[in-house]
Write a protein that binds this DNA or RNA. Structure first.
Length: 464
RNA sequence: GUGGCCGUAGCUCAAUGGUGGAGCGCCAGAUUGUGGCUCUGGAGGUUGCGGGUUCAAGCCCCGUCGGUCACCCCA
C-alpha cells in the first residue's frame, strides 16, 4: 500500500508541546498587557464572505486571499457559466470570483470592522478590544513568513483623539520590553503627511503608489537607491529632489516636524498630520515611552490601503528581519460597511515573528513542558501508593503524571529528563515500608526522602 | 506571482556515474532501585515523489512536491 507522506501543507506548521508551551507564555503576556490597559477579548469566524475582504488590502492583498471553493450545485452552476462564455474573462481574479464567494480571513482588522458595523448598538464606545487568532495568506513562505500565522490585534474604535494613537505606541513598548527585547523601535509616520508630500512635490496621481513604495525601501536600499527608483519613475528633478530632501530628514521627531512644517504649509492635510504627529509623540512620552523606543520615519508607508492617519511599525534595530508588528489609524473602514465612518486605530503583533526572534535570541532552549512531577512505578504492589501520592500532588496544584507501567527506574528517569519534568517522585517497596517517598530534583540531581504526608508540601517548595 | 540554491537514517551531514556511510540521537546490555560519564552490541533508508538517459543513477536530464534565499509584498 502506498504510504502517504506526512508533510504539512505549504507554509503551515505543527506545534508540539515544547513549542506550544513557549507560544502560550507569549500569548499570556500579551493577553495580560492588553487587559491591563482595558482591552477586552473578541473572536470572529475564520471564514468571511469574500466581499467583506476584497478591496481592503490593495491589489496584492486580493491576490493573497485564500478562497474557498464553492460546493455542489453552486459549483456546477459556476462551471456552466464558464463554459457558456468561452471568450469571457479567464483571469485568475475573475475565475476566483466565479468559483468562490467565501475566503479565509486575511487579517483581524477588517473582520473586526465588520463586527463593529454589525453590532454597533450592542457596543459601548469608545470600544477597546484585542483579538488573537490565526490568519491566512497565500504568500510564498520564507523565514518568519507563513501561510497560516497568528496575529494579535489591539484596536480602539470610536475616538479621534491622538491619545489612543499614542497608547498604541505605549503598548508596543510595554509588550516588547516585557518580552525581553532590548533592540526595538516603533517607527511612526502619517498617511495624511504622505499624501501631502505627494501633493507638494507634484507627484502625479497615477505615480503616487509607486513613489511611496520606493520611499518605503529606504532602510533596504538607502537614500541613493530611493533616488534611483524615483528617477526611474520619471517624476522630474524638482519632485525627486524635494522628496529626497524630506525623506532624508533626521533628528528628534520634534526637530523633523519643525523642519517639515514650512514644506507642507500650503497643504491643510499636511499641517493637520504634523499637528497630530506632534501630539502622538508628546503623549507617548508622557505615557512612559523612552525616546529611543520611538522614531519619526517618513519612509514608513505600509501596504494596507485602509489607513488614514498615523501609521506604526515596530522593528528590531540589530537584525534584518521583517517587522514584528504594524498598524495605524483607519477612520474610514467601518464606513464601507455602514455608510457612516467611525474612527479607529489599532496595531497588530506578528506572533510568529516574535516567537522566531525570541527563539533565535536564547539558543540554549531547555525542553519545556507543563508537567511538573513524574511519579514512578515499581511493581503492581506499589500502584495504589503511587496513585494516592499523585492525587496529593495534584491537590496541591502540581501538574503530575504517573508513569504508565513498571519499567526499570532508569527508563522512567530518562523519560522525565527528556520531557524536561523537573521533579521525579520515587516510591518503591523500601519507601512504602518506611512511610516515605523520595523526591528527586532532576535539575540538580539531588534527592531526599520525606514522609509521604509531607510530600506535596515539600514538592511545592522544591518547584517554587 | 518572478528568479537562484537545496532535498540522502529521527537530526546534522559524507559518498569520482559502479556494493549508500559517519557523528549525534534512539533501543538493549555492562549496572535486578536512579537520567547526565564510559564501554559493547543493535535497530533504523524504495536517497522527497514521478518519468527519462545509461550496461549501470543518490549523482546527469525533465517534471512535480517541499524547504530556503532574493524580488514583490508583508506579520
Amino acid at each position: 500500500m502506498a504510504r502517504i507522506a506526512p508533510v504539512n501543507a505549504k507554509g503551515t506548521r505543527d506545534f508540539l508541546p515544547r513549542d506550544l508551551v513557549r507560544r502560550n507564555r507569549v500569548f499570556s503576556l500579551l493577553r495580560e498587557t492588553f487587559e491591563h490597559h482595558g482591552y477586552e477579548p473578541i473572536e470572529t469566524p475564520s471564514v468571511e464572505n469574500t466581499n467583506v475582504l476584497e478591496g481592503k488590502y490593495g491589489e496584492e492583498g486580493d491576490r493573497l486571499l485564500f478562497r474557498i471553493l464553492k460546493r455542489g450545485e453552486s459549483l456546477e452552476k459556476a462551471a456552466r457559466m464558464l463554459l457558456a462564455e468561452a471568450d469571457g474573462d479567464h483571469s485568475a481574479a475573475a475565475l476566483s470570483r466565479l468559483f468562490s464567494d467565501e475566503a479565509l480571513r486575511y487579517d483581524l482588522t477588517v473582520p473586526f470592522a465588520r463586527v463593529i458595523a454589525a453590532h454597533q448598538n450592542d457596543i459601548v464606545f469608545p470600544f477597546r478590544r484585542y483579538q488573537m487568532q490565526p490568519v491566512w495568506r497565500a504568500d510564498r513562505p520564507q523565514r518568519g513568513r507563513y501561510r497560516e500565522f497568528y496575529q494579535c490585534d489591539v484596536d480602539c474604535v470610536g475616538s479621534r483623539s491622538m491619545t489612543v494613537d499614542a497608547e498604541m505606541v505605549a503598548i508596543y513598548c510595554e509588550v516588547f520590553t516585557r518580552l525581553g527585547y532590548t533592540n526595538f523601535v516603533t517607527r511612526v509616520n502619517h498617511r495624511g503627511l504622505l499624501n501631502s508630500l505627494m501633493a507638494v512635490s507634484a507627484v502625479p496621481e497615477d505615480k503616487r503608489v509607486a513613489t511611496m513604495t520606493a520611499m518605503d525601501k529606504l532602510d533596504k536600499i538607502g537614500l541613493d537607491g530611493v533616488r534611483e527608483e524615483l528617477v526611474k519613475l520619471a517624476l522630474g528633478d524638482a519632485s525627486v529632489d524635494q522628496l529626497i530632501e524630506m525623506i532624508g530628514l533626521s533628528g528628534t521627531p520634534q526637530a523633523m516636524l519643525a523642519a517639515l512644517r514650512p514644506m507642507v504649509a500650503d497643504s491643510t492635510e499636511g499641517v493637520e498630520a504634523l499637528d497630530e504627529l506632534a501630539e502622538v509623540f508628546e503623549y507617548a512620552a508622557a505615557m512612559g515611552v523612552p525616546t529611543e523606543r520611538v522614531s519619526f520615519d517618513m519612509s514608513l508607508v505600509r501596504g494596507l490601503s485602509y489607513y488614514t492617519g498615523p501609521i506604526f511599525e515596530t522593528v528590531l534595530t540589530d537584525m534584518q528581519f521583517g517587522s514584528l508588528g504594524g498598524g495605524g489609524r483607519y477612520d474610514r473602514l467601518i464606513g464601507q460597511f455602514t455608510g457612516r465612518d467611525l474612527p479607529c486605530v489599532g496595531i497588530s503583533f506578528g506572533l510568529e515573528r516574535i516567537f522566531d526572534t525570541l527563539s533565535e535570541q536564547d539558543a540554549n532552549e531547555e525542553p519545556a513542558t507543563t508537567t511538573q512531577a513524574l511519579v514512578t512505578l515499581f511493581s503492581r504492589e506499589t500502584f495504589a501508593h503511587a496513585f494516592a501520592l499523585a492525587r496529593d500532588l495534584r491537590a496541591a496544584g502540581i501538574c503530575t503524571e504517573v508513569y504508565t507501567e513498571p519499567k526499570k527506574l532508569s527508563t522512567q528517569l530518562t523519560f522525565a529528563k527528556n520531557k524536561g519534568i523537573p521533579l521525579a517522585v520515587i516510591l518503591g517497596p523500601e519507601e512504602i515500608a518506611a512511610g516515605a517517598v523520595v523526591l528527586r530534583d532532576m535539575r540538580t540531581s539531588t534527592q531526599r526522602a520525606v514522609p509521604s504526608a509531607d510530600a506535596a508540601a515539600q514538592a511545592q517548595a522544591l518547584l517554587r
